[in-house]
Design a binder for these strands. Sequence first.
DNA 1: CCTCTGATCTTCT
DNA 2: GAAGATCAGAGGG
Length: 209
Amino acid sequence: MSDGPRMEAGFYARDPVGVARGLLGQRLVAVQPDGTRLAGTIVETEAYLGVKDKAAHTFGWRKTERNASMFEPGGTAYVFLNYGIHSVLNLSVGAAGVPTAVLIRAIEPTEGLPTMFERRGKARRPSELGSSDLGSGPGKLTQALGITVADDGIDTLASDRVFVERLRQRSLPGRKIVVAKRIGIDYAEEWADAPLRFYVRGNPHVSRL
DNA sequence: CCTCTGATCTTCT
DNA sequence: GAAGATCAGAGGG
């Protein structure tokens, strides 16, 4: 487990597509109240382009209590409750006032697996080759890591609770990055087919290949 | 393998 | 009242 340095502010100072691609292979860490580290390699992301993107919560400059974190500076956690049930994690991108973000859709768990199995309950699927449904979805990975809407607004550049570590050598066991349309946004008309989802080819923890 | 559905909260109509 | 950046379980092939 070679620890990497904390992801720096400059990483988020570019377009959401670059950030979405750049996050693949980096490590997402959630430190528990007891100090335990839970972590996983990010293997699937989606970019949300903000005011012009019909699939984004900030389309047309819409700002609500819920999506306020998307307007915060890059690296701020935007965690919202989806379908009234699932906490979903994004990282805001760009300068303050620029409401773009990257959704974390899947991780490959690497640290704290026993705790994640407990959190995920019966739905877990242990296997010799590594579990494939501990973090294989935006709602699943937050549950496994213990991230909830209470973590909305956290500055991951400074927080000791939720942050991203930049690995010396990006861990992309699945090699190449695949580009595809985003999931669950069929209502977004022409934006529904935009190639804004990115995942590590062949990785078993990706939500949908 | 697949499709269908309930759960349950925020936002908008 | 309806729909949604989802998940798990049930049922059919």
